[in-house]
Protein backbone atom coordinates (compact mmCIF):
# COMPACT_ATOMS: atom_id res chain seq x y z
CA UNK A 1 0.00 0.00 0.00
CA UNK A 2 2.86 2.38 0.93
CA UNK A 3 6.40 1.91 -0.31
CA UNK A 4 9.42 4.15 0.28
CA UNK A 5 12.50 3.14 -1.69
CA UNK A 6 15.85 4.72 -0.79
CA UNK A 7 14.13 7.92 0.19
CA UNK A 8 16.35 10.83 1.12
CA UNK A 9 15.16 14.29 2.00
CA UNK A 10 17.59 17.15 2.47
CA UNK A 11 17.13 20.77 3.44
CA UNK A 12 19.50 23.60 2.94
CA UNK A 13 19.99 25.74 5.97
CA UNK A 14 22.52 28.54 5.82
CA UNK A 15 24.52 26.85 3.09
CA UNK A 16 24.62 23.61 5.07
CA UNK A 17 22.79 20.54 3.85
CA UNK A 18 20.67 18.88 6.51
CA UNK A 19 19.41 15.33 6.10
CA UNK A 20 15.84 14.98 7.33
CA UNK A 21 15.65 11.47 5.94
CA UNK A 22 18.60 9.33 4.93
CA UNK A 23 18.12 6.46 2.53
CA UNK A 24 14.94 5.16 4.12
CA UNK A 25 13.27 1.99 2.92
CA UNK A 26 9.81 1.18 4.17
CA UNK A 27 6.92 -0.98 3.15
CA UNK A 28 3.50 -0.80 4.73
CA UNK A 29 1.01 -3.38 3.66
CA UNK A 30 -2.66 -2.90 3.04
CA UNK A 31 -4.64 -3.02 6.28
CA UNK A 32 -1.59 -2.61 8.46
CA UNK A 33 -1.49 -0.38 11.56
CA UNK A 34 1.99 1.10 11.86
CA UNK A 35 3.35 3.53 14.44
CA UNK A 36 6.32 5.72 13.72
CA UNK A 37 8.24 6.82 16.79
CA UNK A 38 11.17 9.02 17.37
CA UNK A 39 12.32 12.16 19.15
CA UNK A 40 11.67 15.51 17.58
CA UNK A 41 13.95 16.17 14.66
CA UNK A 42 14.20 12.48 13.89
CA UNK A 43 12.45 12.98 10.56
CA UNK A 44 9.13 11.38 11.45
CA UNK A 45 7.09 14.39 10.38
CA UNK A 46 9.02 14.62 7.14
CA UNK A 47 8.32 10.95 6.55
CA UNK A 48 4.61 11.47 7.19
CA UNK A 49 4.54 14.47 4.86
CA UNK A 50 6.22 12.45 2.12
CA UNK A 51 3.81 9.55 2.57
CA UNK A 52 0.96 12.08 2.64
CA UNK A 53 2.08 13.64 -0.64
CA UNK A 54 2.53 17.03 0.95
CA UNK A 55 6.24 16.81 0.30
CA UNK A 56 8.47 15.22 -2.31
CA UNK A 57 11.68 13.35 -1.55
CA UNK A 58 14.99 14.74 -2.76
CA UNK A 59 16.00 11.26 -3.82
CA UNK A 60 14.33 7.86 -3.93
CA UNK A 61 10.93 6.63 -4.91
CA UNK A 62 7.55 6.76 -3.21
CA UNK A 63 4.61 4.55 -4.11
CA UNK A 64 1.12 5.05 -2.75
CA UNK A 65 -1.38 2.37 -3.71
CA UNK A 66 1.02 1.35 -6.51
CA UNK A 67 1.18 4.90 -7.89
CA UNK A 68 4.63 6.39 -8.14
CA UNK A 69 4.15 9.86 -6.71
CA UNK A 70 7.58 11.27 -7.63
CA UNK A 71 6.45 12.09 -11.12
CA UNK A 72 3.17 13.75 -10.16
CA UNK A 73 2.63 17.49 -10.39
CA UNK A 74 0.78 19.53 -7.78
CA UNK A 75 -2.64 18.57 -9.13
CA UNK A 76 -1.70 14.91 -9.22
CA UNK A 77 -0.47 15.01 -5.62
CA UNK A 78 -3.63 16.85 -4.59
CA UNK A 79 -5.75 14.08 -6.10
CA UNK A 80 -3.79 11.42 -4.19
CA UNK A 81 -4.29 13.35 -0.93
CA UNK A 82 -7.94 13.73 -1.72
CA UNK A 83 -8.72 10.18 -2.79
CA UNK A 84 -6.16 7.93 -1.09
CA UNK A 85 -5.29 9.63 2.16
CA UNK A 86 -7.14 10.92 5.20
CA UNK A 87 -5.18 13.28 7.41
CA UNK A 88 -5.65 13.53 11.17
CA UNK A 89 -3.71 16.29 12.90
CA UNK A 90 -2.60 16.97 16.46
CA UNK A 91 -4.49 20.29 16.57
CA UNK A 92 -7.56 18.82 14.78
CA UNK A 93 -7.33 21.65 12.22
CA UNK A 94 -11.02 21.98 11.61
CA UNK A 95 -12.26 25.00 9.68
CA UNK A 96 -13.71 27.18 12.47
CA UNK A 97 -16.39 28.78 10.29
CA UNK A 98 -17.91 25.47 9.28
CA UNK A 99 -20.06 23.17 11.40
CA UNK A 100 -18.89 19.65 12.21
CA UNK A 101 -20.99 18.28 9.37
CA UNK A 102 -19.78 20.90 6.88
CA UNK A 103 -16.17 20.19 7.82
CA UNK A 104 -16.76 16.56 6.88
CA UNK A 105 -18.48 17.61 3.66
CA UNK A 106 -15.51 19.72 2.56
CA UNK A 107 -13.38 16.90 1.07
CA UNK A 108 -16.50 15.68 -0.76
CA UNK A 109 -16.89 19.12 -2.29
CA UNK A 110 -13.25 19.20 -3.34
CA UNK A 111 -13.73 15.85 -5.03
CA UNK A 112 -17.23 15.97 -6.48
CA UNK A 113 -17.93 19.71 -6.67
CA UNK A 114 -21.49 19.92 -7.90
CA UNK A 115 -21.79 16.43 -9.29
CA UNK A 116 -22.91 15.14 -5.89
CA UNK A 117 -26.28 16.27 -4.62
CA UNK A 118 -26.44 18.14 -1.33
CA UNK A 119 -28.56 15.39 0.21
CA UNK A 120 -26.14 12.67 -0.76
CA UNK A 121 -23.23 14.74 0.53
CA UNK A 122 -24.96 15.30 3.86
CA UNK A 123 -25.81 11.66 4.10
CA UNK A 124 -22.24 10.57 3.49
CA UNK A 125 -20.89 13.13 5.94
CA UNK A 126 -23.35 11.94 8.58
CA UNK A 127 -22.29 8.36 7.95
CA UNK A 128 -18.65 9.36 8.48
CA UNK A 129 -19.51 11.15 11.72
CA UNK A 130 -21.24 7.98 12.82
CA UNK A 131 -18.16 5.92 11.90
CA UNK A 132 -16.10 8.35 14.00
CA UNK A 133 -18.61 7.83 16.82
CA UNK A 134 -19.74 11.42 17.17
CA UNK A 135 -23.32 11.79 18.29
CA UNK A 136 -25.53 13.19 15.60
CA UNK A 137 -26.75 16.05 17.76
CA UNK A 138 -23.28 17.61 17.52
CA UNK A 139 -23.35 17.64 13.72
CA UNK A 140 -24.41 21.27 13.49
CA UNK A 141 -22.05 22.52 16.19
CA UNK A 142 -19.13 24.73 15.28
CA UNK A 143 -15.71 23.36 16.27
CA UNK A 144 -15.34 25.83 19.15
CA UNK A 145 -18.52 24.41 20.68
CA UNK A 146 -17.01 20.94 20.85
CA UNK A 147 -14.54 19.33 23.25
CA UNK A 148 -11.08 18.29 22.06
CA UNK A 149 -12.07 14.67 21.78
CA UNK A 150 -15.20 15.54 19.83
CA UNK A 151 -13.20 17.78 17.51
CA UNK A 152 -10.75 14.99 16.84
CA UNK A 153 -13.66 12.69 16.01
CA UNK A 154 -14.91 15.28 13.50
CA UNK A 155 -11.40 15.44 12.05
CA UNK A 156 -11.34 11.65 11.74
CA UNK A 157 -14.77 11.71 10.10
CA UNK A 158 -13.39 14.31 7.68
CA UNK A 159 -10.44 12.01 6.96
CA UNK A 160 -12.93 9.24 6.13
CA UNK A 161 -15.12 11.37 3.85
CA UNK A 162 -13.71 10.27 0.50
CA UNK A 163 -13.27 6.70 1.78
CA UNK A 164 -9.47 6.68 1.43
CA UNK A 165 -7.54 3.43 1.99
CA UNK A 166 -4.94 5.19 4.16
CA UNK A 167 -5.28 7.24 7.33
CA UNK A 168 -2.27 9.28 8.40
CA UNK A 169 -2.35 10.61 11.93
CA UNK A 170 0.23 13.09 13.18
CA UNK A 171 0.27 12.98 17.01
CA UNK A 172 -3.51 12.45 17.07
CA UNK A 173 -3.60 12.41 20.87
CA UNK A 174 -1.08 15.21 21.42
CA UNK A 175 -3.70 17.78 22.35
CA UNK A 176 -5.92 15.46 24.36
CA UNK A 177 -5.86 14.10 27.90
CA UNK A 178 -4.73 10.51 28.19
CA UNK A 179 -8.21 9.06 28.64
CA UNK A 180 -9.66 10.84 25.62
CA UNK A 181 -6.48 10.06 23.70
CA UNK A 182 -6.93 6.40 24.37
CA UNK A 183 -10.48 6.48 23.06
CA UNK A 184 -9.32 8.19 19.90
CA UNK A 185 -6.67 5.50 19.44
CA UNK A 186 -9.31 2.84 19.96
CA UNK A 187 -11.35 4.47 17.25
CA UNK A 188 -8.39 4.41 14.86
CA UNK A 189 -7.86 0.77 15.75
CA UNK A 190 -11.48 0.00 15.05
CA UNK A 191 -11.21 1.71 11.65
CA UNK A 192 -8.15 -0.41 10.97
CA UNK A 193 -9.75 -3.67 12.04
CA UNK A 194 -13.33 -3.27 10.89
CA UNK A 195 -13.03 -0.94 7.94
CA UNK A 196 -9.66 -2.29 6.78
CA UNK A 197 -8.02 1.14 6.70
CA UNK A 198 -4.25 1.24 6.55
CA UNK A 199 -3.31 3.44 9.52
CA UNK A 200 0.00 5.22 10.06
CA UNK A 201 0.41 7.09 13.35
CA UNK A 202 3.33 9.34 14.13
CA UNK A 203 3.91 9.82 17.85
CA UNK A 204 6.53 10.14 20.51
CA UNK A 205 4.25 8.50 23.10
CA UNK A 206 5.02 4.81 23.48
CA UNK A 207 1.52 4.15 24.88
CA UNK A 208 0.05 5.51 21.68
CA UNK A 209 2.55 3.69 19.51
CA UNK A 210 1.61 0.36 21.15
CA UNK A 211 -1.78 0.48 19.41
CA UNK A 212 0.07 -0.37 16.22
CA UNK A 213 0.99 -3.80 15.04
CA UNK A 214 4.47 -2.61 14.27
CA UNK A 215 6.57 0.27 15.60
CA UNK A 216 9.21 1.90 13.46
CA UNK A 217 11.82 3.84 15.38
CA UNK A 218 13.39 6.77 13.59
CA UNK A 219 16.56 8.52 14.66
CA UNK A 220 18.46 11.22 12.79
CA UNK A 221 16.55 10.51 9.62
CA UNK A 222 17.21 6.80 9.61
CA UNK A 223 15.21 3.79 10.65
CA UNK A 224 16.88 2.71 13.86
CA UNK A 225 14.87 -0.42 14.53
CA UNK A 226 11.51 -2.06 14.02
CA UNK A 227 9.42 -3.77 16.64
CA UNK A 228 6.69 -6.20 15.78
CA UNK A 229 4.04 -6.20 18.49
CA UNK A 230 1.46 -8.52 17.06
CA UNK A 231 1.57 -11.04 14.35
CA UNK A 232 0.68 -9.40 11.12
CA UNK A 233 -0.16 -12.16 8.80
CA UNK A 234 -0.49 -10.88 5.26
CA UNK A 235 -4.12 -9.90 5.31
Amino acid sequence: MIKLKNVTKTYKMGGEIIYALKNVNLRIKEGEFVSIMGPSGSGKSTMLNIIGCLDKPTEGEVYIDNIKTNDLDDDGLTKIRRDKIGFVFQQFNLIPLLTALENVELPLIFKYRNSMSEEERRERALKCLKMAELEERFANHKPNQLSGGQQQRVAIARALANDPPIILADEPTGALDSKTGERIMQLLKKLNEEDKKTVVVVTHDINVARFGERIIYLKDGEIEKEEKLRGFDDK
Binding site: L54, T78, R81, R82, G86, F87, L94, I95, L106, F110
Partner: peptide, 16 residues
Amino acid sequence: TKEIGVMRSIGASKRD
Protein backbone atom coordinates in the same frame (compact mmCIF):
# COMPACT_ATOMS: atom_id res chain seq x y z
CA THR B 1 -2.54 30.54 6.12
CA LYS B 2 -3.09 27.53 8.34
CA GLU B 3 -6.65 27.01 7.13
CA ILE B 4 -5.37 27.10 3.57
CA GLY B 5 -2.77 24.48 4.50
CA VAL B 6 -5.47 22.28 6.02
CA MET B 7 -7.66 22.56 2.96
CA ARG B 8 -4.74 21.74 0.69
CA SER B 9 -3.92 18.65 2.76
CA ILE B 10 -7.48 17.33 2.66
CA GLY B 11 -7.67 17.61 -1.12
CA ALA B 12 -8.25 21.22 -2.14
CA SER B 13 -6.46 22.02 -5.39
CA LYS B 14 -4.79 25.34 -6.07
CA ARG B 15 -7.80 26.15 -8.18
CA ASP B 16 -10.16 25.54 -5.25
